[in-house]
């Protein structure tokens, strides 16, 4: 792992560390990270956050506070303008708010896409794709076009596509926001299953507090724009998690606390 550690520094920042393991053995470290867009919008200001390998961290915050920006900075989709980000970007999973499938590709070919971009041999692509399609419960739909799948199934294809690269870090940007409640809760369980089985480090942006608590080992509350970390809540429940957990008193209590913190964040 240490060999592919990527430390990205803001243009005016200090020299990058020399390929040593990430600070404190973490999987992702934001060190005084700020992000100012070219138009002057401050997306993030002085974000400090360390995520240990195998943690599943949810991020909640007022809309427009910079949650997506945080993931984009971490993944390298945009370059931050201050501070340092430490993350291994070599095996990165990323799902967007919608499934972003290529509509002209069948399920099978969509799942193979990222491997194709990484020049995996065809034989291996096919094998891994079949495996991941089975993992998300879509065996039998390999030859369907996305057009004919339900929203939940599309999202599963999207998950399988990311899983194909065996991600060490998996980022989710409000992935289930557009789905109905029942599909959403099922996918929550499936992602937890995947998390337990595949052992990636997860960062999960959501606007649902119960979802955040249900999924994660830590919930981060961000303040309104320019986003900074306002509160971090440890979630004391063990994995794998049972759906009944949602109805327990300590679950509701934690949700309540986070709710209060979020309200403070919105009011500023």
């Amino acid at each position: 792992m240490s060999a592919d550690s990527t430390s990205t520094t803001a243009p005016e920042g200090q020299a990058a560390a020399d390929g040593a393991s990430l600070p404190g053995g973490n999987a992702i470290v934001f060190d005084h990270v700020s992000m100012t867009f070219p138009d002057g919008t401050e997306g993030l200001s002085d974000v400090n956050l360390a995520i240990a390998p195998g943690e599943f961290v949810s991020i909640v915050g007022p809309s427009g506070c910079g949650k997506s920006t945080l993931l984009k900075v971490a993944s390298g989709l945009v370059t931050h303008t201050g501070g340092k980000v430490w993350v291994d970007r070599d095996q990165l999973g990323y799902t967007f708010q919608d499934a972003t499938l290529l509509p002209w590709r069948k399920v099978q070919d969509n799942v193979e896409l990222l491997m194709e971009l990484r020049d995996f041999p065809a034989e291996e692509r096919r094998r891994i794709a079949a495996e991941k399609i089975e993992l998300v419960g879509l065996t039998g739909f390999e030859n369907h076009y996305p057009q004919r799948l339900s929203g939940g199934m599309k999202m599963r294809v999207s998950l399988a596509r990311s899983l194909a690269l065996n991600p060490a870090v998996f980022m989710f940007d409000e992935p289930f926001g557009a789905l109905d409640e029942i599909t959403r809760e099922r996918l929550n369980d499936e992602v937890i299953d995947l998390f337990v089985r595949e052992g990636f480090t997860g960062i999960f942006v959501t606007h649902s507090i119960p979802e955040a608590v249900y999924m994660s080992s830590k919930v981060v509350v961000m303040s309104r724009r320019p986003g900074r970390i306002q509160d971090i809540f440890e979630v004391p429940f063990a994995y794998p998690r049972a759906p009944e957990m949602r109805y327990q008193a300590d679950f509701s209590e934690l949700c309540g606390e986070i709710s209060l913190s979020l309200r403070k964040a919105i009011e500023g």
């Binding site: 390298g76 989709l77 990323y94 967007f96 919608d98 972003t100 290529l102 896409l113 194709e116 971009l117």
Partner: peptide, 19 residues
């Protein structure tokens, strides 16, 4: 986001155009 997907894999401009 489809473009972002390609960018995350460091796909070249040419590959992004074609695929």
């Amino acid at each position: 986001n489809i473009l972002n997907l390609f960018k995350l894999q460091n796909a070249s401009w040419w590959v992004t155009l074609r695929k």
